[in-house]
């Protein structure tokens, strides 16, 4: 799947990075907890979030992310968009809720970041 495909599936609006929409997307992570994002995500992942503060962009910078998706039609302030632009991020926004956006992307074949899902001995 490419970012362009995501835009079609989510009926999203492009805020930044119109020239990079053919970038492939391999996995997705949906979270408002940046610490969870920092724990599990790599640069091939698109971040879907409802949080629009500067730390979303700084977290993306640390992880070399390529694309941010804001849900419920949220648009970050211009200073945040400017710093995303400096990093060359593609930023899109969809009217869908996080749950619906994830469901539609999953249905079209996009999957989450691989994390262990089995309970281990340390969980007992």
């Amino acid at each position: 799947m490419t970012i362009q495909d995501m835009i079609r599936i989510l009926n999203a609006r492009v805020l930044l990075g119109e020239d990079k929409l053919d970038t492939p997307v391999y996995t997705a992570c949906c979270s408002d907890l940046m610490s969870d994002v920092l724990a599990f995500v790599d640069e091939k992942t698109v971040l879907i979030t409802g949080l629009t503060n500067p730390h979303v962009v700084r977290t993306s910078e640390m992880l070399d992310l390529k694309c941010l998706v804001f849900v419920r039609g949220k648009v970050p302030t211009q200073d945040i968009l400017d710093s995303a632009d400096e990093q060359g991020l593609v930023v899109i926004t969809t009217k869908l809720t996080a749950f619906s956006a994830c469901g539609m992307l999953y249905q079209e074949g996009l999957r989450g970041v691989p994390v262990p899902v089995e309970w281990g001995a340390e969980d007992k």
């Binding site: 907890l33 940046m34 610490s35 724990a39 949080l51 503060n53 730390h55 977290t59």
Partner: peptide
Amino acid sequence: SLGFGAGMGLPNMKR
């Protein structure tokens, strides 16, 4: 409110 304080910081550093 900024997306931190989830109790992942120190374990993330160690990992």
